[in-house]
Amino acid sequence: MKWTSYPYLLWIIIFILVPLVLVLLYAITATEEHISNLEFTLDNFNRFLDPKYFDVLWVSVKLALQSTVMTLILGYPIAILIAKEKPSKRNILISLFIIPMWMNFLLRTYAWLTLLGKNGIINFIISQLGFGPLDLLYNDGAVLLGMVYNFLPFMILPIYSVLVKIDNSLMESAEDLGANKFQVFTKITLPLSIPGIITGITMVFMPAVSTFVISRLLGGGQYMLIGNLVEQQFLWVGDWHFGSAISIIMMIFILLTMAITAKFDTQKKGSRGLW
């Protein structure tokens, strides 16, 4: 190991390994006693077996899956359109998705309160058309909209980065051999873009399933997602042990999800190689 890698190794130990060890230590202990008197237990994990916590997990996974599917449906055509543009125009379009990400995540979510509120811009336009104000906030739709808006670039960019590298001569050759546009898409574009789709799904699902800011602001506190539950245990209840146990469970869940998507991606690559 070269000496130049030591700063990175030190960074990993201080800011990744040590926090993980502390979270694990809180998760498997019951009291705040001195380290020599710690009582190790799995009760914090057993508490999560309560059906009410499974309901919270189910709602979190459901909304995360819905937002992932919606970002894929919206993001894939956008990525294709951008990849087909000239390089100069392509860079401008990509910048339009990247620049909003420079703004603070909390501020971007707060902006939707102004747009969707009863006195917001959308309801103002609706009232000018002669209709009554709509309840656009504090429901599943508002939370889902916030997730899709905030995480859509994480779906577009990986897919775009794969599509832009596909050799156009492959598509031209397929068309010369008599393939129509649908066949070119299903036989060439879609299979070759699978790695970008897998990466995009992973990058959207992971933050979506653990988010708590979006559900708190756009859900009005009516939606208890798994991220809100962890926040509640640490900041309001003061039960760091149970909060750490939930964090460990979510970490395992996310790692399993990543392993499944990675395995699926590997199988796809292998099948393409055999073909």
Score class of each variant (00 low, 15 high):
Phe264Trp: 13
Thr186Phe: 00
Gln267Gly: 06
Met251Phe: 08
Gly227Glu: 00
Met171Thr: 15
Met1Thr: 06
Gly141Glu: 07
Gly196Phe: 07
Ser244Glu: 03
Arg216Ala: 03
Ile82Lys: 01
Leu81Ala: 15
Ala142Asp: 14
Ser60Met: 11
Asp43Leu: 10
Ile248Pro: 05
Ser215Cys: 06
Trp3Ala: 13
Leu38Met: 09
Gly221Arg: 11
Gly75Cys: 00
Ile197Val: 15
Thr4Phe: 10
Lys268Leu: 10
Pro51Glu: 11
Arg90Ala: 12
Phe105Gln: 04
Trp102Cys: 06
Asp43Glu: 15
Ala245Ile: 00
Leu144Arg: 00
Val204Tyr: 09
Asp239Thr: 13
Asn123Gln: 03
Leu115Lys: 00
Thr41Val: 05
Ile197Gly: 10
Val230Trp: 01
Leu235Ile: 00
Thr29Met: 02
Phe151Cys: 01
Leu116Phe: 14
Met103Leu: 12
Phe105Gly: 00
Gly221Asp: 11
Leu25Pro: 02
Tyr223Gly: 09
Trp3Lys: 06
Leu42His: 05
Tyr138Gln: 10
Ile125Gly: 09
Tyr26Asp: 09
Pro153His: 11
Asp43His: 08
Met224Arg: 12
Tyr223Val: 14
Thr261His: 02
Ile248Ser: 04
Asp55Lys: 05
Ile198Ala: 14
Ala259Leu: 13
Ser88Pro: 04
Leu144Asp: 02
Ser5Ala: 15
Glu172His: 02
Thr29Arg: 03
Asp50Leu: 13
Leu20Met: 13
Leu49Pro: 08
Leu256His: 09
Leu49Phe: 15
Thr71His: 07
Arg216Cys: 01
Ile16Thr: 11
Ala142Val: 10
Trp236Arg: 05
Thr68Glu: 04
Leu38Phe: 03
Ser67Leu: 03
Met171Arg: 14
Lys89Asp: 02
Pro100Tyr: 03
Thr202Ser: 13
Tyr6Thr: 15
Gly270Cys: 01
Pro158Tyr: 07
Phe154Gln: 14
Phe45Gln: 14
Leu116Arg: 07
Val209Ala: 05
Leu10Val: 15
Phe205Met: 03
Leu190Lys: 06
Met171Ala: 11
Leu74Ser: 09
Ala64Gln: 07
Ser210His: 09
Ile194Pro: 05
Lys165Tyr: 09
Gly132Met: 04
